[in-house]
C-alpha cells in the first residue's frame, strides 16, 4: 500500500495540484505568474503553423533557401526568426513524386514547436502513435490521403533531440502565385505528412 502512488485522476485534483506547484515555485522565486501568462499567450497567439507555412512557401520559391533548409533545418528556420525554446534540432523532410514522409512521436508528443506550435490532440493520441509506424498507409487513408503503391512512405519517429517538419510538394499550377497566396495553401497537416498541400483555389 502506498499513499504516494494513489492518484484519483479527477480534473479537480489535477487543478489543485497544479495550483500548489505554481504557488510553491513562485514563492521560491523560480517563476512568476506574469511569465507563465506570457508563455501561454505566445503559444496560444503567436507560435503556430503559420510559421511553418512561411518556411515552406519560401522553400518553394527560393531554390537556395530550399537547399539550405534541407541541409540544416534548424539554422534555415532560425533565419526566419523561429527558434526552438527547448533547444532541439529540426530536420526537414522533402516530399517528392516518389517519397512521402510522415511524422510521429511514438513515445509522447515531440513536435517542432517553433514552426507548428503545439501538437493537435490526435497527434498525442495512443492510436496515432501506435499505428503510424505499423500501418502508415491505412492511417493516411483515414486522413483522406490515398497514396499509390509506387510511392514510398517513410515514417519518422521524433524524439527529445530531433523534431521533423515535412516539406510538402508544391501543388501543380501554383507557380505564379504570390508568397501570401502560397502560404495559405500550406496546412498544418501537410507539414506533419498526413495531407498534401492544398491545390490552387
Amino acid at each position: 500500500m502506498s499513499d504516494t502512488h494513489h492518484h484519483t485522476h479527477s480534473s479537480a485534483d489535477a487543478e489543485i495540484r497544479a495550483k500548489a506547484l505554481e504557488s510553491l515555485l513562485i514563492e521560491k522565486g523560480l517563476i512568476s505568474t506574469d511569465l507563465i501568462d506570457e508563455v501561454v499567450r505566445q503559444y496560444e497567439e503567436d507560435i503556430g503553423p503559420l510559421n511553418g507555412a512561411r518556411v515552406v512557401a519560401r522553400a518553394w520559391t527560393d531554390p537556395d533557401y530550399r537547399e539550405w533548409l534541407l541541409r540544416d533545418g534548424t539554422q534555415a528556420i532560425a533565419d526566419m526568426g523561429y527558434h526552438g525554446r527547448e533547444g532541439s534540432k529540426i530536420v526537414v523532410l522533402e516530399n517528392t513524386a516518389s517519397v512521402h514522409n510522415l511524422v510521429v512521436c511514438t513515445l509522447c508528443s515531440c513536435y517542432p514547436w517553433p514552426v507548428l506550435g503545439l501538437p493537435p490532440n490526435w497527434y498525442k493520441s495512443y492510436a496515432y502513435r501506435a499505428r503510424a509506424v505499423r500501418e502508415p498507409r491505412k492511417v493516411l487513408s483515414e486522413f483522406g490521403l490515398i497514396l499509390s503503391e509506387d510511392i514510398e512512405v517513410r515514417v519518422w519517429d521524433s524524439n527529445s533531440e530531433v523534431r521533423y517538419l515535412v516539406l510538402p510538394e508544391q501543388p501543380a499550377g501554383t507557380e505564379t502565385l504570390s508568397s501570401e497566396q502560397l502560404i495559405a495553401l500550406v496546412s498544418r497537416d501537410s507539414m506533419i505528412g498526413v495531407a498534401h498541400a492544398n491545390g490552387p483555389v
Partner: peptide
Amino acid sequence: QIDELPADIAVPRDNGE
C-alpha cells in the same frame, strides 16, 4: 480510435486550434 480523428484538416489559423 483513429476513426475519431477530428476532421480539422484545414488551413492553419494563427494558432491552429
